[in-house]
């Protein structure tokens, strides 16, 4: 028996356009995931499918070996905070907390009050009258206070200033340590979550490109710098995902093992960070323009 979410051969088409193609993924319990991909890669569609908001064209999604579709018990374990606003605009924030408590059966009201203070949110105002940033904050607070064990955060820092983002990351860690659960975070600001995520899923044009631990990913990604001709001959046969040149100096980005080839003295090998790896992996062209 597998625990967690298992996505099998999932495809989604809108009209005739394929948004997701044969996705196979697992989301384990109590793990922080980064769901990365460029705009339109299909991240939001995937999250919408997992939370049963839309229907797959093909394939299925299981949770602890049970189909998630129209299953209260499973859906009550999930919470998707999305860019789309599904809350009624005229409801006051405080009432929304109460509604959520009633519908989820539980809600950490004390923690919610704390967060309201920390973020400087006016919980007596109507949801629809809040700014984008504060609407995001309301959804974040709910996401952190519901009893769900799988929290999906689609662009969780949309419209938040640096200060509020910092509060959010701190609280995420805090609540995660107190009550470990799975967070799947989809964001453009990779640098800010790079050290938070244990597992990375990269989606490119509706397909899973990478699904691995961030430690393994970084260990397997190299930036090789040195004189152009030396670098070129060193990386021949390796999986080069991008490069930059400046005069005679070249940096080649390699994803995958380097095998045992001898390393010339004139080149330096470093690991790429997640952001750099992501940019190079999801770049549409095979290699970047030869200019810095």
């Amino acid at each position: 028996m597998s625990s967690g979410i298992e996505i099998q051969h999932l495809s989604k088409q809108y009209e005739k356009k394929t948004i997701l193609h044969d996705i196979n993924l697992k989301f384990e319990p109590k793990t922080i995931y980064g769901l990365l991909g460029r705009n339109g890669a299909g991240k939001s569609t995937l999250l919408g499918l997992i939370s049963d908001r839309i229907f797959p064209t093909q394939g299925r999604i299981l949770f602890n070996a049970e189909m998630i579709h129209d299953n209260d018990q499973i859906l009550g374990q999930f919470y998707l905070m999305s860019e789309v606003d599904l809350y009624p605009n005229r409801r006051r924030v405080r009432q929304l907390f109460r509604d959520t408590e009633q519908l989820y059966g539980e809600f950490n009201r004390k923690y919610a009050d704390e967060l309201v203070k920390k973020f400087g949110l006016d919980d007596s105002s109507q949801y629809g009258k809040l700014s984008t940033g504060y609407r995001t904050i309301v959804k974040l607070i709910i996401a952190l206070c519901v009893p769900a064990t799988y929290i999906f955060l689609d662009e969780p820092v949309l419209g938040l200033d640096a200060n509020h983002r910092d509060i959010f990351y701190r609280e995420l860690v805090e609540t995660y340590t107190e009550r470990p659960r799975t967070f799947v975070i989809s964001t453009h600001l990779i640098e800010e979550i790079a050290n938070l995520i244990e597992q990375v899923v990269v989606i490119k044009s509706g397909r899973v490109l990478v699904d691995d631990s961030s430690e393994a990913l970084i260990a397997e990604s190299y930036a090789i710098t040195g004189p152009k001709n030396v670098v070129d001959s060193f990386v021949s046969g390796l999986n080069v995902i991008g490069s930059e040149t400046l005069g005679n100096l070249k940096a080649a980005y390699v994803f995958g093992a380097l095998d045992d080839r001898p390393i010339p003295d004139v080149i330096t090998i470093e690991h790429m960070d997640l952001q750099k790896l992501f940019v190079n992996l999801t770049n549409e062209e095979e290699t970047q323009n030869d200019a810095l």
Binding site: R170, E174, I193, N195, L196
Partner: peptide
């Protein structure tokens, strides 16, 4: 973890 946004 909190201070530096690193996974616990």
């Amino acid at each position: 973890s909190k201070e530096f946004h690193i996974n616990p």
